[in-house]
C-alpha cells in the first residue's frame, strides 16, 4: 500500500517536473513568469493526439507532440517576449496570461469543447509484484521523465551550449562578452522547456486517456507553486519540489483519506516551506 502510493506519487510528480522545469528555466534566463507555458503543455497534448490519430504510433506521436510544443514555445519567445523585454516584467506577464486564455479558446474552436480520448497502445505492459502494481502508463511516465531528466542534466553540465545557458541565467551581459549569442541561447532554452511541457501534455493525455481545452488551467497555477517551492530558477529544486508535491498529494488523499482538495496541496506546501525557507527548498538568496 505504502509502496503503491509512493509509485503513484512519483509518477504524478514526474509530470509536474516536466511542466515546471520549462517554467523555471524561462524564469531563470528572462525573469518572466511564463504563464502561457501551461497552454504549450495542452498544445503538446493536442498535437500528440492528432498525430497519433494520423500515424497510429504512440512513440512517434510523443515526438511530434514535443516538436509541436517546442516550435510554439519558440514563436512565443520570438514574437511576444523578446520585443517586450525592455519593458517592466509586468508587461510580458500580462501578455502571457492573455495568450494562455487565447490558446484555450483556440483549442475549443479547433478541436471542440469536449474531452477527446488519447487511447494509445504504448506496448510496455503493466507490472505487478505481489500487491504492488504499476500501470503501463505509469511505467511510461517514469521512463520518459527519467530519459528527459538525464538528457537535460547531460546537456546542462556536459555541453558548451548548456554551460553558456547556465552562465546566461547568472549574468547575460558578461556571457555575451565571451562571444555567446545570448538571443540564440534564449531560443534554445524555450525549445527545450517547451518540448518538455509537450511531453508532459502527451503523457497526461495518455495517463488520463483524455485531452481537453482547459487541461492546462490547473497545471498553470500548480506549476507556479512548484517553481516557487523549488526556488525560482533552480532546476534541481524544481525537480525535488515536483516530486514532493506529487507525493504529498497522493499521501494526503490516498493514505490519510483527508477530505482536502487535491489541487490545494501544492499551495499549502508552498506556504509552509516559504515560512521557513523564503527562497524555496533549494533556493539561495
Amino acid at each position: 500500500m505504502l509502496w503503491q502510493q509512493l509509485a503513484n506519487g512519483i509518477a504524478i510528480g514526474s509530470v509536474y517536473a516536466l511542466i515546471s522545469l520549462g517554467l523555471t528555466m524561462v524564469y531563470g534566463i528572462l525573469r518572466i513568469l511564463h504563464v502561457a507555458h501551461a497552454g504549450i503543455y495542452a498544445l503538446g497534448a493536442y498535437v500528440g493526439l492528432f498525430s497519433f490519430r494520423l500515424i497510429g504510433n504512440f512513440w512517434l506521436s510523443l515526438i511530434v507532440g514535443m516538436a509541436g510544443a517546442a516550435i510554439a514555445g519558440y514563436f512565443v519567445e520570438r514574437l511576444l517576449y523578446t520585443p517586450l523585454l525592455h519593458l517592466p516584467r509586468i508587461a510580458p506577464l500580462i501578455v502571457s496570461i492573455g495568450l494562455f486564455t487565447a490558446l484555450e479558446e483556440a483549442f475549443r474552436i479547433v478541436a471542440g469543447p469536449h474531452t477527446l480520448a488519447y487511447n494509445a497502445r504504448v506496448g510496455l505492459g503493466d507490472l505487478s509484484i505481489g500487491s504492488f502494481h504499476l500501470t503501463e502508463t505509469q511505467i511510461l511516465i517514469l521512463l520518459v521523465t527519467l530519459a528527459i531528466l538525464i538528457f537535460l542534466w547531460a546537456f546542462l553540465t556536459k555541453t558548451r551550449t548548456g554551460l553558456a545557458m547556465r552562465a546566461c541565467a547568472q549574468d547575460p551581459e558578461t556571457t555575451s562578452s565571451f562571444g555567446v549569442n545570448v538571443s540564440a541561447i534564449i531560443a534554445v532554452n524555450f525549445l527545450i522547456g517547451s518540448a518538455m511541457a509537450g511531453a508532459a501534455g502527451v503523457l497526461i493525455g495518455v495517463y488520463d486517456n483524455q485531452v481537453w481545452p482547459t487541461m492546462g488551467s490547473i497545471p498553470a497555477y500548480k506549476a507556479l507553486a512548484i517553481v516557487v517551492l523549488g526556488g525560482l530558477g533552480n532546476i534541481p529544486g524544481t525537480v525535488l519540489a515536483s516530486i514532493v508535491v506529487g507525493l504529498a498529494e497522493t499521501f494526503f488523499i490516498g493514505v490519510l483519506a483527508i477530505p482536502f482538495p487535491r489541487d490545494a496541496v501544492a499551495f499549502v506546501a508552498m506556504i509552509l516551506v516559504l515560512m521557513f525557507k523564503p527562497y524555496g527548498l533549494l533556493g539561495k538568496a
Binding site: 554551460l163 553558456a164 547556465r166 552562465a167 547568472q170 549574468d171 558578461t174 556571457t175 555567446v180
Partner: peptide
C-alpha cells in the same frame, strides 16, 4: 559567474 566552478568560468 557565482554558481559556475572556477574551471567552468575559464571554459566560458
Amino acid at each position: 559567474f557565482p554558481d559556475l566552478t572556477v574551471a567552468e568560468n575559464l571554459f566560458m
